[in-house]
Design a protein around this nucleic acid. Structure first.
Length: 984
RNA sequence: GCCUCGAUGGCGGAAUUGGUAGACGCGCUGGAUUCAAAAUCCAGUUCUUUCGGGAGUGUGGGUUCGAUUCCCACUCGAGGUACCA
């Protein structure tokens, strides 16, 4: 009876599917536990061994929790809208839905092979109309809501309308656009419907606005800030420019404070919390208004976090795009200012970022008036001031801010010092604490804290401004000029957006002939011929009917990638409900995610937006909690170990014709490079005939007029390399026919490749396919090995050679039950030693899983099986609980053993065994030690140590210490098993 | 620049509140079995040594009877972020 994992795994996967073993009910006497994975985007390349890492961890936890008596939900689905399928469609004309379908089938096959305990009855796909119906529905809810700052929550827009009717907008404290004019109830009632809608749009949580966006001409779409890396698009690395466009936006800024506060309630990794905190970027300070000399009407508002330094202001700087610039610029400075504005507009984002150090700016010729001193302050423009943050203007305090300092130094502006006993001749003083304010009138001698309080009081008192909290977080642009995304449930009547009633959803993505933007620059949906809304029939109809009075054009943009993923975890709770996003019963039962595992790359994208939607849906009474994931773990990336062959490149052109393709083994190459550098140090030029490489003497031969050649590393498919880094030369020649005549310079008859850790990718030929691993070693080995590789949260390189360890562990486990080729267990009572092994293992594994230290628990299993093998233990009382605790890691073999033990139900329904502390106490003894009765501490020593040995160990330790400290060693008395006394 | 995390044998990595550093696995060495190989099993494997021992967890300090663990400074590496007033 061999350990035939192929048969075992196939049988059990079939059994699980047929019996729906992992289907979770929305009702149970057991406590609930929700384990969530970040659902994958089904890419054409399929899974590589890095992808399932987080899924394996969450699956182990889910299976463990089932054994622990929880009703576990562990769903899976697909984030199936996205750019790759669309770009493939643009290239090939194939509908993205087809590509997606195929890819999902591949993914499902691969996932099934690994033996996950997913509840597939809850599967969601973001591109499925039955799913995106609810994405559209949430969008409508956002449109029908505004954010009431007094209640600090989202409220129905109808309430806002009622307030407008009753008292206008003067008392409203709501999140809204900044260009709102106040009106009375009377005004409101007299406004036309159109005007009313325009006003309401400024309050809605999703709104249409002319926004400056990151436009990527190459992709023909708008990108979010987090889709841009170093000024170019994350995907493809194309140029990105700023452009004004009419776009849907999400008023996430209304939630800035709550998104910040919520972080304290959830157990998420600190680095991730930090990056969200930074992204939200709360800063406390004040808005201060400066009058402009000679311009009664125009004032400059600035936001500052250091109003306490206001007496240190010696100039002001405006962003070049600031609206007042053209107005206040003096005649003499006009040319210079215009030239500067032109120059900055030209500079791409990339230039501006790469070139932070350069200081540039121009004086406008205008002066502001200091609100307290009345002094004239020169107004400059400079591109270090960003139009998009704060008010696009700063009051410059060169003594307290490095950029202001650098600017002042560069242009020879005054740098007044307002800090007590601080030298600012070299650099600005940016610390807040530890210094008192000076030369600042009523602030003199005050600390930072006191000065802040006083100045904000004075500013507010005198009407120069007010204390304010500012956020870096921007409203999120929600429109994409793409085809393969959720269509908006929106049509336009007289240019005003209208929501389609929820009962007519979903609005299904129309067919188009071309997936590219139209020739006149409209999004791809502009190519659709059946894309208009008939308000009479409430159906999508042909565009040509738009002349009818009841037919209107539909929105041409689609939603961004994060739309479908922002609340999918709630839909899992009630995935097949056609009438509600999620029923009250389902959501009240499941509440929230207990464990969420996924990558940290979504820190400021998905993981922020989903928290925002959660809070919104909570406000509107749809969800019972406002944070959806209690605990989150970021699994590390599994990197690939690329292999390289080193090609000898001749520099000598004369030999071009007779040039041979030669690959040199890695250690040999290293040697050659080393020798070369030695020779070059001696100032000689050397040429070597590569065919002579084997002859050591040739290497040292110096030849005056020739040059060394270089080695070019060439990626080798990792499957052609064995565990000892030896290349399969014949396989390599077949794989790359252009090298079929290549010569290889070997080492003891072997070609040794070079290794380097890189991200797994097709082009680097370092991708390891989990299917191949399952085929060769089995899914249980793959699962164990991925966990054994290292701590879950760390990134680590894949090395297939290590898998033999876990594979032989499984074989050993199997062999424990097989005596003379027969499955055999004894009902004999286990010995104390055997029980000790078992209970030690149970305890350790339990602790490890609770701490998510899956790697060490695998070691614990190995130790247990080694010990039991040594004891030749095949007793049921030991093996049965052992199979149960191993199940989360190696479910197939565990189920098979379980069956062979005579059980008829699946092992996954069995309770995790209790450990018996009695057996553990004997495994180690604690020796408390006291010094002169004063200090006590414990030393853990192996139980088999004799009194003499302990005495010797402690004494030798004491001797060393005494010697080091120059005192006489103290006498030590050991009381066996109890106390070690060290007496004076 | 800033933020975060990390540094332990040839390699991946263990080490409850500070208490035998290097568990477990890979690799390597030797042996058993075999006609031979694979597989399996056993032993060894931080370095150094005059075989008593000595040194040792990135570097330098500190606290402690005792530090991989705590504190300070530094070096290197990985990831994130970027003129945020």
């Amino acid at each position: 009876m061999e350990y035939n994992f192929r048969k075992i795994e196939a049988d059990w996967q079939k059994y699980w599917a047929e019996n729906q073993t992992f289907k979770a009910e929305n009702k149970s006497d057991k406590p609930k536990f929700y384990v969530l994975d970040m659902f994958p985007y089904p890419s054409g390349a399929g899974l590589h061994v890095g992808h399932p890492l987080g899924y394996i961890a969450s699956d182990i936890y889910a299976r463990y929790k089932r054994h622990k008596g929880f009703n576990v939900m562990h769903p899976q689905g697909y984030d199936s809208f996205g750019l790759p399928a669309e770009q493939y469609a643009i290239q090939t004309g194939q509908h993205p839905a087809i590509t997606t379908e195929t890819n999902i089938a591949t993914y499902r096959k691969q996932l099934d092979k690994i033996g996950f305990s997913f509840d597939w009855s809850r599967e969601v796909r973001t591109s499925d109309p039955n799913y995106y119906k609810w994405t559209q529905w949430i969008f409508i809810q956002l449109f029908e809501s505004y954010y009431c700052k007094d209640a600090d929550q989202a409220r129905p827009i109808s309430e806002l309308i009622a307030i407008f009717n009753a008292e206008g907008n003067t008392k409203i404290n709501a999140a809204c656009d900044d260009n709102i004019e106040s009106f009375t109830a009377e005004d409101w009632k007299n406004y036309s419907e159109e005007v009313k809608q325009h006003i309401l749009l400024k309050y809605r949580l999703t709104f249409l606005s002319e926004t400056e966006v990151n436009w990527c001409p190459a992709l023909g779409t708008v990108l979010a800030n987090d889709e841009i890396v170093n000024g170019v698009s994350e995907r493809g690395g194309h140029q990105v420019i700023r452009k004004k466009m009419k776009q849907w936006s999400m008023r996430i800024t209304a939630y800035a404070q709550r998104l910040l506060d919520g972080l304290d309630k959830i157990d998420w990794p600190q680095p991730l919390k930090d990056s969200q905190t930074y992204w939200i970027g709360r800063s406390e300070g004040a808005m201060v208004t400066f009058n402009v000399d000679g311009f009664e009407e125009d004032k400059i508002d600035v936001f500052t976090t250091r109003p306490d330094t206001i007496f240190g202001v010696s100039f002001m700087t405006l962003a070049p795009e600031h609206e007042l610039v053209s107005k206040i610029t003096s005649a003499e400075q006009k040319d210079k200012v215009e030239a500067y504005i032109k120059a900055t507009a030209k500079r791409s984002e990339l230039d501006r970022m790469a070139d932070v150090k350069t200081i540039s700016g121009v004086f406008t010729g205008a002066y502001a008036l200091h609100p307290f001193t009345g002094n004239k302050i020169p107004i400059w423009i400079g591109d270090y001031v960003l139009a998009s943050y704060g008010t696009g203007a700063v009051m410059a305090v060169p003594c307290g801010d490095e950029r202001d300092y650098a600017f002042a130094k560069h242009f020879g502006l005054k740098i007044p010092n307002i800090f007590e006993n601080v030298d600012i001749s070299e650099t600005a003083y940016t610390e807040k604490e530890g210094v008192n304010i000076a030369n600042s009138d009523f602030l003199n001698g005050l600390s930072y804290k006191k000065a802040m309080k006083r100045i904000i009081f004075e500013i507010e008192q005198k009407g120069f401004g007010f204390g304010k909290i500012n956020y870096r977080l921007r409203d999120a642009v929600f429109s994409r000029q793409r085809y393969w995304g959720e269509p908006f449930p929106v049509y336009y009547k007289n240019g005003l957006p209208q929501m389609i009633e929820a009962k007519f959803l979903p609005i299904v993505l129309p067919e188009v002939e071309k997936y590219l933007p139209t020739e006149d620059g409209k999004p791809p949906l502009g190519n659709a011929t059946v894309w208009a809304w008939d308000t009479k029939t409430n159906t999508v109809v042909a565009n040509k009917l738009i002349n009818n009075k009841t037919v209107f054009p539909l929105e041409l943009n689609t939603m961004p990638g994060w739309a479908g993923s922002s609340s999918y975890f709630n839909r899992y709770m009630d995935a097949n409900n056609p009438d509600e996003f999620v029923s009250k019963e389902a959501v009240n039962y499941w509440q929230d995610v207990d464990l969420y595992i996924g990558g940290s790359e979504h820190a400021t994208g998905h993981l922020l937006y989903s928290r925002f939607w959660q809070k919104f849906l909570f406000d509107r009474g749809i969800l019972p909690v406002d944070e959806y994931a209690k605990k989150l773990i970021n699994q590390g990336m599994i990197t690939g170990t690329s292999a390289f062959a080193y090609r000898w490149e001749y520099n000598n052109h004369e030999d071009e014709k007779t040039k041979k393709i030669i690959f040199v083994s890695k250690p040999r190459m290293d040697k050659i490079i080393k020798e070369r550098s030695t020779i070059e140090k001696e100032g000689k030029n050397v040429k070597i005939d590569p065919t002579d490489l084997l002859r050591e003497a040739e290497l040292t031969k110096a030849s005056e007029n020739n040059q060394w050649s270089n080695f070019t590393p060439i990626h080798v498919d990792v499957s052609l390399v064995n565990a000892s880094d030896e290349l399969d030369i014949e396989g390599f020649k077949k794989w790359r026919p252009e090298f079929k005549d290549a010569e290889f310079v070997l080492e003891d008859g072997k070609y040794i490749v070079g290794r380097e850790v890189e991200k797994m990718s097709k082009s680097k030929y370092n991708v390891v396919n989990p299917d191949a691993i399952c085929e060769e070693y089995g899914a249980d080995s793959l699962r164990l090995f991925e966990m054994f590789l290292g701590p879950l949260e760390q990134s680590k390189p894949w090395k297939t050679s290590g898998i033999s360890g876990v594979y032989s562990f499984l074989k050993k486990l199997w062999k424990l039950y097989i005596v003379n080729g027969e499955f055999s267990v004894s009902d004999e009572k286990p010995t104390k030693e055997e029980l000790k092994t078992l209970h030690k293992t149970i305890k350790k594994v339990e602790e490890d899983i609770d701490n998510f230290s899956f790697n060490t628990s695998v070691s614990t299993f190995m130790i247990a099986v080694n010990e039991l093998t040594a004891l030749k233990c095949n007793k049921r009382a030991i093996l049965e609980p052992l199979a149960i605790i191993i199940e989360p890691y190696a479910p197939h073999i565990a189920e098979e053993l379980w069956k062979n033990l005579g059980h008829t139900t699946s092992i996954s329904k069995v309770d995790f065994p209790e450990f018996n502390a009695a057996y553990l106490v004997e495994s180690s003894k604690e020796y408390p030690i006291s010094f002169n009765g004063k200090m006590r501490f414990k030393i853990k020593l192996p139980m088999d140590m004799s009194k003499e040995e302990i005495e010797k160990a402690v004494m030798s330790h004491e001797k060393t210490q005494a010697q080091l400290q120059g005192r006489t060693p103290k006498k030590i008395i050991v009381v066996p098993g109890k106390i070690v006394n060290i007496v004076g």
